[in-house]
Amino acid sequence: MSKVMSMKQAIAKHVNDGDFLFIGGYICRTPFAAIHEIIRQQKKDLTVTRSNAADDFDMMIGAGVVKRFIATFLSLGFYGLGRCYRRSLEQGIPHKIEVEEYTNLSLPMMLMAGSMGMPFIPVKDMAGSDLLNVKSFMGDNKYKIIDSPFDGAKTVLVPALNPDLAIVHVQQADEDGNAQMWGIGGDCQVGANAAKKVIVTCERIVDREVIGKDPSRTIVPDFKVVAVVEEPFCAHPGYTPGFYDFDFNFGNLYKNASSTVEGFQAFLDEWVYGVTGRAKYIEHYIQKMGYGAYRNLQAKFDYGYPVSYAY
């Protein structure tokens, strides 16, 4: 049964106020179009998570849709600190979000545990650091320290996470939601599989037969997926391997805009509220930056030896 719908429908139907969301991406394949739609629909009180957040989460925090953040890191990387994140935590603008801090080892492990139906998982990091001395909304359930029942060693346990919904962007999926990706993975696969349901956004919808030509690439199977959204250029200003490059100039644009409350609001007015969806966003991008800039982002082709599963 086809689960294909528009981004607007998918977000309206499956993102509820107060939900706990995993949103995949690592500059690579971030579903920006979904994030923009969440902001446009002014969802409220979301708890969000993912390892290594960037302008994507910064934008949601600045737009006021986030209440809680299960975090490891938030920075604009090459472009400096996350301006909206700082304003939220330092000045309470638009409100102070609650942050529960983990690391790029412990958080993926918590998602992996969630994906496997495990209650918790031991991790070898965080010990001896102040990450154990700060607890937010998870309270004493942020972690536990036990003596290992096997060898008596001091062991940090962290709880499994099971988000209400995961949103992941992939290169291709079929109409039922079998989703295939390639390139830098971050915590996309464990995050998607930890969630109770998944929205798959993709660059292209392909036939089930095409999925079967390279099934090892599937990261989430159709039975977990509730919506499939075909949304080319979804990850801009991030990138999707094989489709388009990271947009360095747009990184500067966001950095400069988000440096002030007014600039950030103008950015949202122009790029989020000012367009109805990703198709209009692309039109606006081409109008503003020129077709050459858009064209330059398109990926070159560099195919390998085709895989065969025949026997």
Binding site: E90, T103, L105
Partner: peptide, 26 residues
């Protein structure tokens, strides 16, 4: 890489651990 000043009322909020803590630990 977390905070300059008090954690609850930061003078300057920094990115957080990311991969730093596990790398430094392991």
């Amino acid at each position: 890489t977390t905070v300059i000043g008090d954690y609850a009322q930061p003078k300057s909020r920094l990115p957080g651990s990311g991969g730093a803590n596990p790398i430094g630990s392991l």
